[in-house]
Amino acid sequence: MSHLIASQKVIQHYLSALLTEDEPLAPQETALAETKKAELNRLLAQATPVAAPVENVVAAPVQTQVVQPVAKATVAPVVTETAVPVAAPVLRERAIPIAERLAVTPPPQLKVEKAYRQGSFQALFFSVAGLRIAVPLTELGGIHELGPINNLPGKADWFKGIMLHRAQKIQLVDTARWVMPEKYTATLATELNYQYVIMLGTSNWGLCCELLIDTINLEPEQIKWREQEGKRPWMAGLIKEQKCVLVDVDELVKLLNQGLDVNA
């Protein structure tokens, strides 16, 4: 035990000497240091035979490392909260007025390209007060001679009345008054000589006309098509050579059902 304590004192003393080795030593201190070094080597050899000699350890330069203080991690204090029950939010639906429930916005209608615009087609030409009008045969519902007319009060000025044809009640249109109301005068009214009824598709609407002209085969390039939406929807286009209107039957029927004339 005393031997171990003596060896520890020698090691501590030697390490202290290393830390101050830059200071010059007196001759007697140098001799003492050499003596202690030899004694330390002897003690180390006795304690651990495989240990390296002190000279080998001393040969390597000793690097002094500055140990940085380790910052203490800040630990957030643990706060114990009492769980407070939170009531779930009450969702209340807005009362929808009946008017809003009934007002259903219809989906936008896509414009359907007419089949007769894809190639050649036939059209019936007729005249009213000197004005030529054409209807595609594919949208022509038939042709009837004008018969007795039953007038109905409270209708638009251009509504001529009801004509019975077999089991069908045909709603007659005073075509001249509907197409050119600004030129319709009392004189023109007395000069008109309606003889035929041009049926519009599968509807009950019929255009009164004075003269059936002819059925002509047309090519799409012979027509200046109406391209602007909302402007004169009842016109499919203008036939260049004959200088007359080609009727869009579907759009014309829509206007008639709404009680609108050409100025709508």
Rank of each mutant, 00 (worst) to 15 (best):
A129R: 07
S127A: 14
F125D: 03
L192P: 04
P220Q: 05
E23L: 12
T82L: 14
V66A: 11
E39C: 02
Q195M: 04
V54A: 06
A17S: 15
C244L: 14
E23H: 12
A176R: 00
A115V: 15
A47T: 05
I213A: 04
P220G: 08
A88Y: 09
V79Y: 10
L255K: 04
Q12K: 02
G141Q: 00
D248E: 14
T80I: 06
K114M: 11
G141S: 11
V50H: 12
A73L: 06
P233L: 06
V249H: 01
P69V: 10
W234H: 01
G119F: 01
K243C: 04
E100I: 10
W225Y: 08
L200K: 04
P49F: 07
N217W: 08
W158V: 00
L146D: 04
K231W: 02
A51H: 10
L152T: 15
V75E: 11
L137K: 00
E23Q: 14
V128I: 14
N257A: 01
L25N: 07
I170A: 02
L238T: 07
L212V: 01
M199R: 03
A52I: 12
V79C: 05
K243W: 03
T185W: 02
F159C: 07
A45M: 08
V247T: 11
E221C: 13
A264K: 09
I213E: 14
L140S: 00
A103V: 09
L4D: 10
Q65E: 15
V67K: 08
T35R: 05
A134E: 09
W205I: 04
V86D: 10
C208W: 03
T30I: 08
A88R: 01
R92Y: 07
C208K: 03
S120P: 09
A264E: 06
K169Q: 13
S7R: 08
M180V: 03
G154N: 12
V86M: 10
I11G: 10
A76L: 12
D174C: 07
A103D: 09
T30A: 15
L91G: 11
L252E: 06
P181D: 02
I143G: 01
P24N: 04
T202F: 05
T64D: 11
H3K: 13
I170N: 01
P108D: 07
N263I: 00
A33Y: 02
Y196F: 04
V104L: 09
R92C: 08
V262A: 11
A51K: 07
L124Q: 00
H165D: 15
N257Q: 15
T48S: 15
T138S: 15
L32P: 00
A83K: 13
K160T: 00
T215P: 02
I5M: 11
E23T: 09
E191N: 11
Y14R: 10
